[in-house]
Design a protein around this nucleic acid. Structure first.
Length: 869
RNA sequence: GGGCGCGUAGCUCAGUGGGAGAGCGUCCGCCUCACACGCGGAAGGUCGCUGGUUCGAAACCAGCCGCGCCCACCA
């Protein structure tokens, strides 16, 4: 800096001044670790549990899996929640952002099993249950905290001093209490029912953990001989091996082809079983032959049909995917795929396969293991959902729980209204083992929160159910179990219901819906007032971001390269709709903004002298920036409150970059150099407010700069977020400076087009009315002729300014510039005339619009007149 | 089969009834004493297609085309 420095600012000591002078670039890496440590040391993120919920603010973080590490979705959601938590904290609420992790049953068990297999060549069955679970706990101790450290790198203001885990003692207590109460209400029951069997994890899974994929199979047509006739019923199937468990053939009751056969029987080839021929409207007579083989043991639809018609349920395929006993002995023990080949071969030999064709259809696969689901009948625990769903539907319907964006409300309601029983038992070892004991002697069942001594009925020995609960059963209790429920804790009283749940759309059913149901049933209130469904960040090419596709981008790489503030800004700025592509450019924009703030602050702080921050509207430009700051304050505050994060971020950028730096700093700089205290005070005030506005989005850089400001009572993280105050808008100042900015732009453009050499000053004469603002001269590098100079003829006008002839102007360039302007004016005049000649427009458009159009036309005509004359 | 989202400048996206915008990229000019992660200027778009409503449509309505996602029991 070449201008002579002012006296040392009272609030910047010599060392810090050197830092400011030396660092022309903001160094995020150095700042972020230091600042985060200062927040942690001060304990700002742990609120005492005081007061009523409405005075507090709480968010329960969607608990990451202990297998997890931070991915882009976590980074976005973490940023969103943190922005809200920080804003509310700055508004004076006691903010608790509840931290914890999820044991993630199948996912974690799979990871540890894989580790055992690859590193030790052993398996969970080798170890046995107790030892295996011990190993999973060890694994969790080693790797479970990784993602929490990563949240810190992002700047997340979670309550790190109070971390929960879904398998902690207190949490387990909550899970057992809920299970027992649901059992006692009769909602939880045990039943032999069709389930989605996942051969990969050797467990039943819920409907929601199934994903359908398009698969091309062979569709076999098989002839079943009709008893007492030489006719056959031809049925079609992509899984011929399931015929071994067929117990009927169904046709449509209105199907004339088969009406006479209904009530009769046909013979199941290879097995010899007599199959009743039944009629049901479910059968589509248009599809295939109109005859449908019914396999209640291995097809969900057939299962329903079977129960409806009281058909026999036969299982021919076991949980290990092999053919089992009731099937003919020669098939028993075969893998299903091998059995399929064998069955087809035998049928072919018998001449019973009448057609084979390729058939593409959707097939269920396990979301977790990726293996094809084997539908089979199994003895499992279920939870009836209808009664639980009713109040959960009501609270969303009447907005006691608001879902944003609101289109997800319909998605939620549609699903809830068609809700089906939930299979809650899993044949795993890692999780909450069912609190269920059986007496083998008298077949009594006990559900209890702690293990009963012996059978109350016969005194016999009890055997605990080996299954564990679906991981989502415990997740469903997250907002209150983390606060100490079922005990009546101060935390529960202070922070339940929570305020916000921010999450991804793919777990609206799995998690959000179940939390609402369980919150209402057990904690006596909604679990949260607002649900925000955030964007899904796709890879830059529009594909899914995933490790296996190689399309993943690691948020930690972005943080180490550009800073957490940059990533936070970028993610918020890009997250405008349901799906958005990751934009490296937005992250860089965030990095640039942090740097811009840093450098603007250097300019201000190094030249502010002893000034104290104060909104000193001494000159019109000072009042202008205060007014513009007020607009930004309103917009950013409203956007954040309305969960419109991309506009909040982009508005911050626009205000800081365009208005504060490009215009106000350039305007006020000369005064700053001349030790103008009013200018310095105003700048400090604007800077202070701007940092506070930025803090929820970019907490690190704002906190760092804040530390250089005078008279701070506290760190920014616990200082006030600016409240909007429409009184601070100054329309007159906005108009005056707005006009000066427009004029400056026109002059700069004119210079450029008229080919005025850089560094040369253009000169001209100011018209009297309206007089150009004095600032224009400096901003546009334009020199106004002396008062008395009326001698030369103007060669052009730019607004109220007459350009005078000068050696600096290339005459050809000037003429080209003038002709371009005339051309523009002619088209504008033509457009205005055409519009005003339209009677419909003049008659029906609002008077103001018509008047505006007339005024514009008049102005364009006048300028054209002048330039042509 | 039903539903949702998206289709606007080379790229990523704003813009919900009155003259097409931003960031990045490109081109021109600048190391101007906060910042080259910078400053000034410019070029660049029949707003997916076809109809309709309206004085006026990128925006509202209908239909189509394309991309993505969700739900659904047609063997």
């Amino acid at each position: 800096m070449r201008h002579s420095p002012r006296k040392l600012a009272a609030f910047v000591d010599a060392d810090r001044r050197k830092t400011l002078e030396a660092k022309t670039r903001y160094d995020a890496g150095e700042v972020e670790t230091r600042i985060f440590a200062s927040w942690m040391d001060a304990g700002y993120f742990h609120p005492d549990p005081e007061g009523a919920p409405e005075d507090n603010y709480s968010i329960a973080v969607p608990p990451p899996n202990v297998t997890g590490s931070l991915h882009m979705g976590h980074a976005l959601n973490g940023t969103i929640q943190d922005a809200m938590a920080r804003k509310r904290r700055m508004e004076g609420r006691r903010v608790k952002w509840i931290l914890g992790t999820d044991h993630a049953g199948i996912a974690t068990q799979s990871v540890v099993e894989k580790k055992l297999r690859t590193e030790e060549g052993t398996s969970r069955t080798d170890l046995g249950r107790e030892a295996f679970v011990e190993r999973v706990w060890e694994w969790r101790e080693t790797y479970g905290a990784r993602i929490i450290e990563q949240f810190k790198a992002l700047g997340a203001s979670l309550d790190y001093s109070d971390e929960r885990f879904t398998l902690d003692d207190g949490y387990v207590k909550a899970v057992y209490r809920v299970f027992k109460q649901l059992f006692e209400k009769g909602y939880i029951y045990r039943d032999n029912y069709m389930v989605n069997w996942d051969p990969g994890s050797h467990s039943a899974i819920s409907d929601l953990e199934v994903e359908n994929r398009e698969v091309t199979d062979t569709l076999y047509s098989i002839d079943y001989p009709v008893e007492g006739s030489d006719r056959v019923l031809t049925v079609a199937t992509v899984r011929p091996e399931t015929m071994l468990a067929d117990t009927a053939v169904a046709v449509n009751p209105d199907d004339a082809r088969y009406r006479d056969l209904v009530g009769g029987h046909c013979e199941l080839p290879l097995v010899g079983r007599r199959l009743p021929i039944i009629a049901d409207p479910y059968v589509d007579p248009e599809f295939g032959t109109g005859a449908l083989k019914i396999t209640p043991g291995h097809d969900p639809n057939d299962f329903d049909l079977g129960r409806k018609h009281g058909l026999e349920e036969i299982s021919a395929i076991g949980p290990d995917g092999r053919i089992i006993d009731p099937a003919p002995e020669r098939f028993v023990g075969m893998e299903a795929a091998a059995a399929q080949e064998a069955v087809v071969a035998e049928l072919r030999d018998l001449g019973l396969i009448s057609a084979e064709e390729a058939y593409t259809h959707s097939v269920p696969f396990s979301h977790r293991s990726g293996e094809r689901i084997e539908p089979l009948i199994s003895l499992q625990w279920f939870c009836a959902m209808d009664e639980l769903a009713k109040p959960a539907i009501d609270v969303v319907r009447d907005d006691r729980v608001r879902i944003h964006p609101d289109r997800w409300k319909k998605v939620y309601l549609d699903w809830m209204e068609g809700i089906r029983p939930w299979c809650v038992s899993r044949q795993l070892w890692w999780g909450h083992q069912l609190p269920v004991w059986y007496c083998d002697a008298c077949e009594e069942t006990y559900v209890a929160e702690s293990e009963p001594e012996s059978c109350g009925a016969c005194g016999g020995e009890l055997r605990r159910d080996p299954d564990v609960l679906d991981t989502w059963f415990s997740s469903a209790l997250w907002p209150f179990a983390t606060l100490g429920w079922p005990d009546d804790t101060p935390e529960l009283r202070a922070f339940y219901p929570t305020d916000l749940l921010s999450t991804a759309r793919d777990i609206i059913y799995l998690w959000v819906a179940r939390m609402i149901m369980s919150g209402l049933e057990f904690a006596g209130d909604v679990p949260f007032h607002d649900v925000y469904i955030h964007s899904v960040i796709q890879a830059p090419d529009g594909r899914r971001m995933s490790k296996s596709l190689g399309t993943g981008i690691d948020p930690l790489d972005e943080i180490s390269e550009h800073g957490a503030d940059a990533l936070r800004f970028g993610l918020l700025a890009m997250s405008s709709s349901q799906d958005v592509r990751f934009s490296q450019a937005k992250v860089e924009q965030g990095r640039d903004l942090a740097n811009k703030l840093w450098n603007a602050s250097r300019l201000i702080l190094l030249n502010a002298g002893d000034a104290e921050p104060a909104p000193a509207g001494e000159r019109v430009e000072d009042r202008w920036i205060l007014s513009r700051l007020e607009r930004a304050t309103e917009t950013i505050g409203d956007c954040l409150d309305g969960y419109d994060f991309s506009h909040a971020a982009l508005e911050l950028y626009r205000f800081v970059w365009s208005e504060l730096c490009d215009w106000y700093l350039e305007i006020v700089k000369p005064r700053l150099y001349e030790d103008d205290d009013a200018a310095a005070a105003n700048l400090l005030h604007v800077l202070e407010r701007t940092l506070a506005l930025a803090h929820p989005i970019m907490p690190f850089v704002s906190e760092e700069i804040w530390s250089y400001l005078p008279d701070r009572e506290a760190q920014l993280v616990v200082s006030a977020f600016p409240a909007a105050d429409p009184e601070r808008v100054d329309e007159a100042a906005e108009e005056e400076i707005g006009a000066a900015i427009e004029l400056t732009r026109s002059l700069r453009r004119w210079r450029e087009l008229a080919d005025v050499a850089p560094g040369k000053v253009l000169s001209g004469r100011a018209g009297a009315d309206p007089a150009p603002h004095p600032l224009v001269g400096a901003l546009a590098r334009f020199e106004f002729a002396a008062e008395g100079d009326t001698g030369s003829e103007a060669i052009a006008t730019v607004g109220p300014i007459e350009i005078l002839p000068s050696d600096e102007l290339d005459p050809d360039a000037v003429e080209a510039r003038l002709e371009e302007r005339r051309e523009k004016l002619r088209s504008e005049v033509e457009r205005g005339e055409r519009k005003l000649a339209n009677d419909g427009f003049v008659a029906k458009a609002p008077a103001e619009v018509v008047e505006e159009e007339r005024a514009k036309l008049a102005a364009y005509r006048a300028e054209l007149e002048e330039l042509s004359g």
